[in-house]
Computed example of a mutant assay.
Amino acid sequence: MIRCKGFVCGCGHSGTTLIATILASHADVFLPFEETNVFFKWAPLALYRYSKLKRAAIGAGKSVLLEKTPRHIRRVDRIRRLVPGAKFVMPVRDGRDTVASLTRRLGDATESLDRWISDNTMVLAERGSTDVLIYRYEDLVDDPEATVEKICTFLGLSFDQSLLDYHRSPQRWFTLDAQPQHAALRNQQVNQPIYDGRGRWKTELGQQELTELTEGRGKSLMQAFGYL
């Protein structure tokens, strides 16, 4: 029986894959190592595909089903309607580092900035919701034990220090078919101990994006999450 249905979502490159990988090492958790995007589908198809995940979790003897698709931040209310009792784990990360990282991935600084603002506006709107836990990537780096324990408690999972050794059993998240270099890099990143990715914006972020985050459109979000 599935007793908890969890969803990890938020802005990409904010640590969604990292926390999903950590939680997937828990003995009670079933997690498909792919971004399903299932709740962007026609409702009957979404429910059918999600039911397949539930059957797979039950077949594996797991009691917690966890799914990670960052873009599901745009479908939170829909998931609530279709999956009663769903819980949402939403990491946030300093917009300067996130936009710098997304720009390396997407090659478009403006698109990266827009995505951080759009997605985190939706995250902030969920602050205070009882079915949502929002945490900062930087807090996970500073105190991984306390942060992971808090998330486990939210999902009804027992916490064990061994969860922080998730990297000793490497997982493959990203296929090598479409973008082999990116996939290889991302798999390497998520299968290593928690690393401190803070401050890279100082050498990688453009001045225009920095100004937008500290003085312009992104300023209120940066302040709300404690980055200014």
Results as ranks from 00 to 15, higher is better:
residue 178 A to Q: 10
residue 142 D to T: 14
residue 123 V to C: 09
residue 208 Q to G: 04
residue 48 Y to N: 13
residue 9 C to F: 13
residue 113 L to K: 04
residue 65 L to G: 05
residue 174 F to H: 14
residue 65 L to C: 07
residue 188 Q to K: 03
residue 223 Q to P: 10
residue 49 R to V: 03
residue 18 L to G: 04
residue 86 A to K: 07
residue 117 I to T: 09
residue 111 E to S: 08
residue 109 A to G: 10
residue 168 R to Y: 13
residue 12 G to C: 10
residue 39 F to R: 15
residue 210 L to Q: 07
residue 220 S to D: 13
residue 42 W to S: 11
residue 36 T to A: 13
residue 70 P to M: 02
residue 155 L to I: 11
residue 19 I to L: 07
residue 207 Q to S: 08
residue 70 P to V: 01
residue 164 L to K: 05
residue 122 M to F: 11
residue 5 K to N: 06
residue 72 H to V: 00
residue 153 T to V: 10
residue 52 K to F: 11
residue 49 R to Q: 14
residue 118 S to G: 07
residue 116 W to T: 01
residue 133 L to A: 11
residue 220 S to R: 08
residue 186 R to V: 02
residue 76 V to G: 04
residue 116 W to M: 02
residue 47 L to R: 15
residue 118 S to N: 12
residue 45 L to K: 15
residue 197 G to A: 06
residue 75 R to S: 05
residue 194 I to R: 03
residue 19 I to M: 10
residue 116 W to D: 12
residue 124 L to P: 12
residue 71 R to K: 13
residue 169 S to K: 14
residue 113 L to C: 04
residue 22 I to A: 10
residue 226 G to K: 00
residue 129 S to V: 02
residue 65 L to M: 08
residue 21 T to K: 05
residue 91 P to T: 04
residue 93 R to K: 04
residue 154 F to I: 10
residue 73 I to D: 01
residue 30 F to H: 09
residue 136 R to C: 11
residue 87 K to P: 10
residue 171 Q to V: 13
residue 65 L to V: 14
residue 212 E to D: 12
residue 201 W to T: 11
residue 202 K to D: 00
residue 39 F to S: 04
residue 186 R to T: 01
residue 205 L to R: 02
residue 204 E to T: 05
residue 155 L to T: 12
residue 184 A to W: 00
residue 202 K to S: 04
residue 35 E to T: 01
residue 74 R to A: 09
residue 167 H to I: 06
residue 190 V to N: 05
residue 64 V to T: 14
residue 64 V to G: 05
residue 77 D to F: 00
residue 48 Y to S: 15
residue 191 N to R: 01
residue 54 K to L: 15
